[in-house]
Simulated scan of single mutants.
Amino acid sequence: GASADTSAHAQAFSIACGTVLGSQNPPVPTPPVHQVLESREFHGSTDGLILLRLARKSLGVEPGSVSTERLERMMEVMYGYISGLSDEEVAEGMDVLPGVLENLTILATMKDRVACGLVTGNVEGIARRKMRAVGILATDALAPPSAEQQKRTWLGSDDIGFLGGFGSDFCSGNIDDEARNHLDRSEQIAIAARRCRDSLPALLPEGDVRGLQRVVHVGDAPADVLAAKAYSISSDAEKHGLCVGMVAVATGSYGAEQLRELAGDPIPGRWEPVVLEDGMDDPDFIEACGIL
């Protein structure tokens, strides 16, 4: 995680919003996200929704007047700012929690049956820089980007791509319904799952015809749990006969009981949530993913 007010990512929102939607010349960044929005409006949300909320509250610009092209331009400006920083600057204020690197290193040895990716509300290029900056990319656990992902260029980061679903892939544009915080994330899970299915022929050993059977989402926030739960009952999960696992790690701002309550009862073979109080530092993390 990173501080909402000091991270490079947080600063990128203000720069992008002021540059693309502001009226001043030269452009002036808007006030920081944490000064303009309530925490529920950005914690667990996606970059696109945060940009639109910041535009409304700091500039009086309504979502309906922000075209898809202008929203994409803001995301490009965000990435442009991040791409000019060193890895040390990108990682400032971010911490990798205990057990993360160790378990990813183990998962890197299981590529014959596990494809690891990242689902995040971040712009894809920013996510790439973050994963390299904090050492996650170096574990070699993340699967290569899909052919679809490779069609989009992230200048300076094209050689550090990986499988996933990102905030730059989908944005509903609906900032009045708080449920969109997790529903937009659920769409990103669906995108990551589709890309994984499309990539399987290249990821599996020659002659292996297994399809995607299980999707496991790991996260520490209510939006993570609700996003995975929404995906478990989606038409995509049903169509492909997927079991959706959720490993809720209680190492963030939310306790185990709150995450457990949001997860609800499991539905064997369809929705299989697990809550770990010690997060990825739990010795049973890999088993909780349903891999062993």
Score class of each variant (00 low, 15 high):
221 A>Q: 12
36 V>A: 01
182 H>T: 04
266 P>C: 00
32 P>Y: 06
276 L>T: 11
111 K>V: 08
105 T>M: 06
170 F>R: 06
31 P>D: 02
67 S>T: 14
98 P>L: 04
197 R>V: 03
92 E>S: 15
226 L>Y: 03
262 L>Y: 03
263 A>H: 02
19 T>I: 01
77 V>F: 04
132 R>F: 02
107 L>W: 11
126 I>W: 05
206 E>K: 12
110 M>Y: 08
198 D>W: 07
76 E>H: 06
44 G>D: 01
111 K>P: 01
61 V>P: 00
190 A>I: 10
60 G>A: 01
143 A>F: 06
86 S>L: 02
60 G>I: 03
26 P>W: 03
270 R>I: 15
262 L>W: 00
271 W>H: 08
198 D>A: 15
130 K>C: 10
71 L>K: 04
211 G>I: 14
92 E>M: 15
68 T>W: 10
75 M>S: 06
104 L>M: 14
214 R>A: 07
248 A>F: 01
227 A>N: 06
82 I>Y: 09
286 I>A: 11
165 G>E: 11
175 I>Y: 05
265 D>M: 10
232 S>H: 05
21 L>F: 03
21 L>Q: 02
272 E>Q: 15
233 I>W: 09
97 L>M: 12
177 D>Q: 07
55 A>P: 01
252 G>R: 09
192 A>H: 10
186 S>M: 07
105 T>F: 05
79 Y>P: 00
155 L>S: 12
68 T>Q: 14
72 E>H: 09
48 G>K: 04
23 S>D: 14
182 H>C: 13
201 P>R: 15
48 G>W: 07
275 V>D: 01
114 V>N: 10
176 D>T: 15
58 S>A: 15
256 A>P: 01
213 Q>E: 14
32 P>T: 13
61 V>K: 06
75 M>G: 11
52 L>D: 04
33 V>A: 01
118 L>W: 11
213 Q>R: 15
175 I>S: 02
45 S>T: 10
254 Y>F: 13
290 G>T: 11
113 R>D: 06
131 M>V: 13
209 V>I: 09
153 T>N: 08
125 G>Y: 10
132 R>L: 04
243 C>N: 07
142 L>P: 03
5 D>M: 10
235 S>A: 15
9 H>M: 08
238 E>R: 05
258 Q>N: 09
287 E>Y: 09
193 A>T: 12
220 D>V: 05
62 E>G: 09
79 Y>F: 15
192 A>L: 13
52 L>T: 01
108 A>N: 14
47 D>H: 12
237 A>I: 01
17 C>V: 04
280 M>S: 08
63 P>I: 13
237 A>K: 01
232 S>D: 06
22 G>L: 03
243 C>A: 13
236 D>L: 01
189 I>A: 08
